[in-house]
């Protein structure tokens, strides 16, 4: 696979490390519940189809990226820096 890093261009996926689903949001703060944290840490949609997921460009710019990739075909439709995501969600 190749991932087009927004900073570095198209690079072999071997330069990246995969983490998992990008959409679960960590329940921050002292008010967060164990149940919500359990959900965040352990439960996954695991879809067969488009999947927003986190990749880390460890052999490049060290950016965490949200990659939208189809798990049936591996086709990638979008790549964006993860740090933009929360800003976008908050806006």
């Amino acid at each position: 696979m190749r991932i087009t890093c927004p900073h570095c261009g198209a690079r072999d996926a071997q330069e990246f490390t995969y983490l998992g689903a990008a959409d679960p949001q960590r329940p921050d703060g002292m008010a967060a519940t164990e149940a919500a944290m359990f959900d965040y840490v352990y439960l996954r949609e695991n879809p067969a189809g488009p999947h927003r997921e986190l990749w880390y460009h460890g052999a490049g710019c060290h950016a965490w990226l949200v990659v939208t990739r189809d798990t049936r075909t591996h086709a990638i439709s979008a790549v964006e820096p993860a740090k933009n995501r929360k800003a976008g969600a908050a806006a």
Binding site: M1, D12, A13, Q14, T17, Y18, G20, A21, N46, A48, H51, E53, R69, T71, R72, T73, H74
Partner: peptide, 13 residues
Amino acid sequence: DGYNSYAQRGNLP
């Protein structure tokens, strides 16, 4: 391979 997949095939790395 290390990434979510239902494709029953992997890659060169």
